[in-house]
């Protein structure tokens, strides 16, 4: 399913979309598929499948630990496509990845295999449009969405250029810092969304370390999508008991889904 279809649906329902992130291969390869199904069953509108990487400079401790675990268990890039293929159909499936993994796989080949698996688009946290020529071409050729990031430090000029390169939605990295759950809410986030909206009609997703339904409701009041990662990963980090992690994830997703519907 395309990202635009999911946003058309949530817009019609007058609410923000819930985007859930989980690294492929975490807590295990099979359980990452199971966990994504659980998120979809409990109200996630879009899924981000993370590609575990050895040097994730934008991620905080929770996602770093999850990636380390998946890599230690022998995760390979091509297995991400198995995950995508297994969960695609009901909601749009995006991959979020550091750029070297795509470049190493081959940008066009990656786009081809990902599209064939039923993927909708890529989120590229360390690729700015200025460096993305090959990806712009490949994403057009294989009809994939491309989601670049804007940040509180982005100038108006850069926001304008970045949203022009985006397709699907725009990812607002709404705090200056790495991914991870935060207790405090951000004043920078609504301001960034407002600045970005002045340059585009695309939906704007907000990543802000949201960890529960209340925070999801707050972010949903100004963003078009609420992106949740570290809190989801956290369901499996603090326990070796995967079934209990699945239960925590089901409860968390239901809470978040209720949040975006308030």
């Amino acid at each position: 399913m395309r990202t635009a279809e999911a946003f058309a649906k949530t817009k019609a329902e007058g609410r923000a979309a819930l985007v859930g992130y989980l690294p492929a291969g975490f807590p295990t390869l099979a359980d990452s598929i199971k966990a994504i199904d659980i998120m979809i069953d409990h109200g996630a509108d879009i899924i981000e499948v993370g590609l575990p990487y050895s040097d994730p400079v934008m991620d905080g401790p929770a996602i770093q630990r999850a990636a380390d675990r998946a890599l230690a268990a022998g995760f390979r890039t091509r297995q991400a496509f198995e995950v995508v293929e297994a969960v695609a159909g009901r909601v749009p499936i995006l991959i979020m990845t550091y750029w070297n993994l795509v470049e190493r796989y081959g940008v066009d080949v990656f786009a081809r295999d990902f599209a064939a698996a039923g993927g909708a688009g890529l989120i590229t946290p360390d690729l700015i449009p200025d460096e993305a020529e090959e990806w712009l071409t490949a994403s057009d050729a294989h009809d994939l969405d491309r989601i670049f990031l804007v940040a509180p430090s982005s100038t108006e000029e850069r926001i304008a250029a970045t949203v022009r390169a985006c397709r699907g939605f725009v990812y607002a990295q709404s705090v200056m810092g790495v991914t991870g759950a935060r207790a405090a809410t951000s004043t920078a986030a609504p301001a960034l969304v407002e600045r970005t909206r002045a340059h585009t009609d695309l939906p704007i997703g907000v990543g802000l370390g949201v960890r529960d339904g209340d925070q999801a409701a707050e972010v949903a009041s100004y963003g078009d999508a609420v992106i949740v990662g570290s809190a989801i990963v956290g369901c499996y980090l603090e326990t070796d008991d995967i079934p209990s992690g699945h239960q925590r994830l089901a409860d968390l997703t239901a809470d978040l889904a209720a949040g975006v519907r308030r």
Binding site: V57, W99, D126, I128, E131, A151, S153, S154, T162, Q173
Partner: peptide
């Protein structure tokens, strides 16, 4: 070379 970093660092 180039700049393969999060957008958040570009301004700096």
């Amino acid at each position: 070379g180039g700049r393969f970093v999060p957008e958040a660092l570009i301004a700096a």
